[in-house]
Nucleic acid binder design. Sequence first.
DNA 1: ATATGACTTGCATACGCATGCAATATGAAC
DNA 2: GTTCATATTGCATGCGTATGCAAGTCATAT
Lengths: 344, 344
Amino acid sequence: MARGVVSSDGKRKPITARELARMIGVSQSAVSRAFTPGASIAPELREKILKFADEQDYHPNAIASMLSKSRTNIVGIVVSDMSNPFYPALIQKLSQGLQRIGLQSLLFNITKGSNIEEQLSALRRYNVDAVIVISATMLSGATLHWATEGRAAILINRVVEDADINCVCCDNVEGARAIADHFHALGRRRVAYVSGLSHTTTNLERQNAFITRVAELGMTLTGRVDGGEYSYEAGRRAALEIASKGNTDAIFFANDILAVGGIDALREDSGKRVPEDISVAGFDDIPMAAWPHYALTTFRQPLDEIVTVVVGMLEDGSCQPGQPSSVKRISGGLIVRQSTGPLA
Amino acid sequence: MARGVVSSDGKRKPITARELARMIGVSQSAVSRAFTPGASIAPELREKILKFADEQDYHPNAIASMLSKSRTNIVGIVVSDMSNPFYPALIQKLSQGLQRIGLQSLLFNITKGSNIEEQLSALRRYNVDAVIVISATMLSGATLHWATEGRAAILINRVVEDADINCVCCDNVEGARAIADHFHALGRRRVAYVSGLSHTTTNLERQNAFITRVAELGMTLTGRVDGGEYSYEAGRRAALEIASKGNTDAIFFANDILAVGGIDALREDSGKRVPEDISVAGFDDIPMAAWPHYALTTFRQPLDEIVTVVVGMLEDGSCQPGQPSSVKRISGGLIVRQSTGPLA
DNA sequence: ATATGACTTGCATACGCATGCAATATGAAC
DNA sequence: GTTCATATTGCATGCGTATGCAAGTCATAT
């Protein structure tokens, strides 16, 4: 099984289509066509070439292919915060979904401090076919436009109204209302809301829908605390603040990681029983929510469906520039666990 | 500010070095050199070209550059399990570290089910400059060799003895011994060990070092349970199994996610007090370990140092094929929290 | 037997940048 | 003024694949 030449420095020099073609006695185009689905080539010749290619360990050079096709099959994934377990879970499913249709994931992990456009410059230099932004925040509208301008782009879990951008997002309104209804059904009447980053669209949607529904149901909003970040610690602080007032019997946290912190603080620092004294609900359904210790009632973000929709848009080209942009709302589902219960 | 031509389908066609050169009245080579650090070009000309480039929004096409330099500046990162929070944290720091030296991260999220070589085929087609494998398992030795053959490669947190491969790994022996010593100092004498995947090198090293040290200190190993996976649930099951025997006063879990599950199970299902009845220690120091609810004593993996070392190896080329491979052990540190304490 | 068309195949070139080499310019030394 | 070394610059070509076009093959229809 002849392999590519190995030079003195140990690097393998793979054989090229031209070399393979010469061995077989066909043109380099034939080799290219053998590897191109739907290309004009006789089935027998394709078979023969693929067989030789396999023997010679020939693989088409994706770089050269990119250059001539000006298509990279690479999707840039922009993330800013992997500390919320929701994101790793999403990224994992997403990258696997992309891989399934032959797309690779170039990860852009942006940091607060330094120049973001500089961090994203590779997005443009590398000519990624599409950009998927999972970062809830961190990107100003201008930066977002700069990064996505002229190429396929999808925001996940973030909605930008004015801009002409595709968004795929869980139905936050549905979720927030479901939580409010659930609280109401349990007999809870004095409820509070805890936000993570108050200006993110996910938060605004959940918050507004929750507060609106709470009012519709005739419940009392006893508090609205902004944690300042989506973190366990922020959840703790917010819970303590609410508990100290003593007039709340149910809290809806903007997401699970906040809620988890909240539960621990309520039980361990405020001496409250969850769910008896205060019921707690979150949003996302991260793995941790299912842990018996938390058994967190939450509104599940349908990761698989979100990924399916995103991959579908990439596949059918409906997110290409020039196409009308759309905002797709994916329906989630209320998951009732033991962090909520009827009023004692 | 002239930008690239926008064709009817909305895609931007960036201007090329040749076009920019023509505008300025220099050769295309000059433009190339202006963007190449250390190239032979007059400082004033470089300035002038960069200024024009900025005005015209010209960016070197990385794809074309890859083709001619046969260097992609892309590092393939192979991961298999993002459900353990340790990995997202590592990936985040790693990708940021790589970015700092101009390398991009192509993420390969491999799945158990299907053909792994197929999942990794893009590693070769895309000519990544280097491969970093963070997957503790999932890759057989043969696949590992296939994936890394002939290119720079580094395994993180996994050591392969026979193969000629670079490894960067926390000092598991140091950590396991530190835990054993800590248990001993607290007066614990009947200790147990819980593994995740028993055949992984991280596990074997921690397990052997722990058991050896336990024997040296004259302590009794009351149990050794294999969880079968690194997960919260596995930790729970193992803890329950150990607790049911009632003869153990300290458990060392192979990593934090197991330990966290163990703590919850001990407290909530076995009615044990942690740390009074059973002390619990983990390994990694994931963010969760610091949560007050767990306050997990653990051995910290020095993420920043690991990343620094890996990035350094990539930068100085010491992980290039042809160079002698090395196994670098990074020293960690014992973090004592409240999940361990003196015998009641 | 010739024409028509459907398929295959090879040729030649484009893709955009990097770089060895030759050419030119600049300045210093004599 | 001349010579030589150094610093810049342009020219021309290579990197490996994709693809429009023309040429070729073959079978069926006329």
